[in-house]
Design a protein around this nucleic acid. Structure first.
Lengths: 223, 223
DNA sequence: CCCTGTGAAGTCGTTCACAGCG
DNA sequence: CGCTGTGAACGACTTCACAGGG
C-alpha cells in the first residue's frame, strides 16, 4: 500500500513554479482564503489552471475533488518540498550597489531566505555596514560557510571578478550559486548555478519592441 | 530569388540567448579574436555548439564552412536583430535600494541600454540624485516617455505598488516591462512582461540543495 | 579536411479533454 | 454537479548526425 509518495524527480519547469505558488498561497492565506481551486491559484500565480493541476500532481499533493486545495496545507506541503521549513542562510559576495541592495532587501525573510553575511575584497568596504550587515573580508568565506552551514552564495561583483569568486565559493564548500555578474561561469558539475542578467532581459524585451516598431514597415522577401 | 531573409519568427528560446552571444562576441573581439567556431562561441557563452549553430541559422546568418564566424560581422548582425543599433532608453520606477543600484549600474551602456529617467512616488525621494539621475515624480511619466520615446520600463518598487505602477506605465505608452517586484502583474496582451524574482531563484536553488542533502537519508516508499 | 547548416530523431513541457471522486 | 487528477495529443526546443561547401 502507498504510504508516502516521495516527491522525487519533479520536472525543472515545475520546480521553477513552486515559489510562485508558495507566494500566491501566502497571499491568499493572508486575505483569509481557506480553500482555493486550481483556477483561483492559477490567476494568483499568473499561470493557467491546467498547469497548476499538473504541477501539483507531481508533488503527490491532495486536493479535494469538487472543492479545491486547502491553502494552508498546500503551502506547508510546498514549503517542505522546496526545503523551506527553516530559512536558508545565504552569503552575498560583493558590497557594491547591487550587493547592498540585496543585503538590505526586506522581502527575503518571508520567502525563507536569510542573509548570513556580506563579504567583499575591497579593503575600503570591509568594516562598513550595508543593510545591517558588517561587510567582512572575502578571506573569511570558508569560516562563514562552515559556521553557519551556508550552502547558497550570491555573486554581486563586477564581471571580471566573478569567476574567481565562484571558485572561492566552491572551494569554501558552497554548492548553489546565484550569479548576477554578466559572465558565463565555469563550475564543477555538482554545483548548481543560476544566472540573473538584467541587461540581457532588457535586450530580450528590446527585440520584441523592435519587431513591434519595425514589423509594419519591413517586409520579408522570400524566393 | 532570395534577397533578404527577414529574421521573422525567431523562437523565443533563441531570442533569449542572443544577448549571451552578443556579450561573448564582444569579449572575443576585445581579445583580438577575428574569427570563431561555433564550438568557440559556445564555450564563451556557456552553451553547447549544436545550439549555437541552430540559433544562428534562424538569423539566416552566414558563417564560413571549414572556418567559422567573423566575430565583428556576427556581433553587428545580432545587434541589428535585437534592435540594438542605438541604445534603448529605459525608465526606472522606484528609487529605493534596487532602483538606485540599477540607476548606478555602469554595465548598461555596453549592452545597448541607457537610463532615461528614474521616478518615484515618495516626495522624500523626489529631487534627490541616484546614480547621476535626479529622481522625478511618477506623475511625470507620460511626459518622460513621450519626450525620450521610452518603450522599456523597469518596476523596482515594493510589491504593493507594482500593479498600479504597471498600469501607469502602460497608460503612459510603454509596451515592455521588466518587473522586479514579486507579484504577478496583470497587463494587456500587447504589453511584453518579464519577471525577475531573486527570492524565487534562491528557492529553486534551495530545492536542489535540499534534495542533495536529504537524498541519501530519505527513501521513496511506493506501493 | 574541417566546420557550417540542417533534416530527422529524441526529449521535455504544455494543453486538452474527460474519467472519477467527493 | 464541480473540480481534481491524468492519459493522450500536441507543440516546442534540443541533440544527433551527416550532407555539403570552402
Amino acid at each position: 500500500m502507498t504510504i508516502l509518495r516521495s516527491p522525487a524527480g519533479i520536472p525543472d519547469a515545475t520546480v521553477a513554479r513552486l515559489p510562485l505558488y508558495l507566494r500566491a498561497l501566502d497571499e491568499l492565506a493572508e486575505r483569509g482564503t481557506d480553500v482555493c481551486s486550481s483556477e483561483h491559484l492559477a490567476t494568483a500565480a499568473g499561470v493557467n489552471s491546467a498547469i497548476v493541476r499538473k504541477d501539483l500532481s507531481h508533488l503527490g499533493s491532495y486536493g479535494t475533488r469538487g472543492v479545491g486545495y486547502d491553502v494552508r496545507f498546500l503551502a506547508g506541503h510546498i514549503a517542505a518540498v522546496v526545503g523551506q521549513t527553516q530559512p536558508w542562510p545565504v552569503v552575498i559576495v560583493g558590497a557594491g550597489h547591487l550587493g547592498s541592495a540585496l543585503a538590505a532587501y526586506q522581502g527575503f525573510g518571508a520567502r525563507g531566505v536569510k542573509v548570513a553575511a556580506v563579504v567583499d575584497a575591497d579593503p575600503e568596504l570591509i568594516g562598513t555596514t550595508v543593510g545591517g550587515h558588517e561587510v567582512l573580508s572575502i578571506e573569511d568565506l570558508p569560516g562563514i560557510v562552515e559556521r553557519d552551514a551556508v550552502s547558497l552564495g550570491i555573486i554581486a561583483t563586477p564581471p571580471a571578478a566573478a569567476q574567481s569568486v565562484a571558485d572561492a565559493l566552491v572551494e569554501a564548500g558552497i554548492s548553489s550559486i546565484l550569479n548576477f555578474a554578466p559572465t558565463a561561469l565555469r563550475v564543477p558539475a555538482e554545483v548548481d548555478l543560476r544566472q540573473v542578467d538584467v541587461a540581457a532581459e532588457l535586450q530580450i524585451l528590446g527585440y520584441h519592441a523592435h519587431r513591434r516598431q519595425a514589423g509594419s514597415t519591413e517586409e520579408a522577401v522570400i524566393s
